[in-house]
Simulated assay, not measured.
Amino acid sequence: MKTNVPFLTSALALGALLTLAGCGKDNDKSGAAKLRISLTDAPGDFRAVRLDVQRIELHLKPENDPSGWEVLPFTPQTINVLEYVNGRSALLVDTDFNPGTPQEIRLVLGPNNFVVGRDGNTYALKTPSGQTSGVKLKLQNVTLTAGQTYQLLLDFDVAKSIVERGNGNGNGNQNERYLLKPVIRVVAQDLNGAIRGTVSPAAAAPQVLAIRSSITVPDTFSTMADASGAYQLWSLPAGTYTVKYFPTTSAPSGQNAYQNATKGGVTVTNNAVTTIDNVSLQP
């Protein structure tokens, strides 16, 4: 899905989380709040996108207090984010904390981040900030109380997060072709509206944009249809949307060209899935 501008930092954006005042084995679990953090993704034009996630940290004190970082219980792992699309998500953190109000979260990446292109070649992802201080996002109005579960979804936008450098030559130049600049939308999972549907032909591999036009400054969310032509945009706020489809491939020789398409007046409500009938991108 695409970014929702208020949730982004400048070049790097990543986020998530709960609320708490302390964490560790000595916490009184009878008065604890529960935090669950999951990762999902929009399909991108790659065979695989693997992130070397080493640590997830939460900042519990004022912004300028360097002692406020707490390491969350998380097993370092390499995650292929393209495995978690169209409603699927990977659970990263599931733990108890004392109630409180966190300020920001940090994702620390190791050096082994890479993509597998459509050409089958593997390319390293350079992550200048993610390898040092980590990718950070401030949290706003996040508070968890005792006995409640706070679920937060990290919605990774592959299309915007992986940038092809101008001097990448596409011939296996693993250190030059791609940069990782994570763009991740932070979603509290009490936003339960969703849009799903199919497009044909699936070979058009369209990008799907849902634009919430019922507010003063429109929000835009995005995904791509998968290999079967199915797509889903989830954790959407209620409202009226215009859904646009943009093919990313060309039709085979002898077939009609793939065309853009638009569906207007799509209504999304909380706790419901809005299904759009199949959209044809070829006359």
Rank of each mutant, 00 (worst) to 15 (best):
235 S>G: 11
239 G>K: 10
247 P>K: 04
240 T>I: 10
236 L>I: 13
258 Y>H: 15
234 W>F: 07
251 A>S: 14
240 T>V: 13
264 G>A: 10
226 D>T: 04
246 F>T: 15
245 Y>C: 08
260 N>G: 02
248 T>F: 02
251 A>E: 09
230 A>Q: 09
235 S>P: 07
255 Q>T: 14
227 A>H: 08
235 S>I: 02
255 Q>S: 10
255 Q>N: 05
258 Y>D: 13
248 T>G: 09
240 T>C: 01
249 T>E: 10
230 A>S: 14
249 T>W: 04
243 V>I: 12
233 L>G: 05
237 P>M: 04
247 P>A: 11
254 G>A: 07
245 Y>L: 09
240 T>M: 07
231 Y>R: 01
227 A>G: 11
251 A>C: 07
235 S>L: 07
234 W>K: 06
227 A>Y: 08
260 N>A: 07
261 A>W: 06
260 N>F: 07
229 G>M: 12
226 D>I: 03
249 T>M: 07
225 A>G: 08
230 A>N: 11
243 V>H: 10
263 K>E: 08
253 S>T: 11
236 L>R: 00
247 P>R: 03
262 T>I: 14
239 G>L: 12
238 A>F: 00
241 Y>L: 07
259 Q>D: 01
242 T>F: 12
251 A>W: 02
256 N>F: 01
258 Y>M: 13
265 G>A: 02
248 T>Q: 14
229 G>A: 08
236 L>K: 00
230 A>Y: 14
238 A>V: 01
241 Y>I: 04
246 F>M: 06
226 D>Y: 05
265 G>T: 00
225 A>V: 03
250 S>K: 09
234 W>D: 09
259 Q>K: 14
237 P>L: 08
260 N>L: 03
248 T>E: 06
228 S>F: 08
242 T>R: 15
230 A>D: 05
242 T>Y: 08
259 Q>R: 12
230 A>W: 08
234 W>S: 09
249 T>H: 03
229 G>D: 06
264 G>S: 14
238 A>N: 01
235 S>T: 15
253 S>H: 04
236 L>P: 01
266 V>I: 13
263 K>F: 00
233 L>S: 13
256 N>S: 03
247 P>W: 03
263 K>G: 00
233 L>F: 12
239 G>D: 13
239 G>C: 10
255 Q>V: 03
261 A>E: 00
259 Q>A: 10
242 T>L: 07
262 T>K: 14
266 V>P: 02
227 A>K: 12
235 S>K: 12
242 T>I: 11
237 P>R: 13
226 D>P: 07
231 Y>E: 01
262 T>L: 14
236 L>N: 01
241 Y>W: 06
261 A>I: 01
228 S>E: 12
254 G>C: 02
237 P>Q: 05
260 N>V: 08
255 Q>D: 06
243 V>W: 09
248 T>H: 04
264 G>Q: 14
263 K>I: 15
250 S>L: 10
264 G>T: 15
229 G>F: 10
262 T>M: 11
256 N>E: 04
228 S>N: 15
233 L>Y: 13
255 Q>C: 04
232 Q>V: 01
240 T>D: 10
254 G>T: 03
225 A>E: 00
246 F>K: 13
243 V>D: 13
260 N>D: 08
258 Y>G: 15
265 G>V: 04
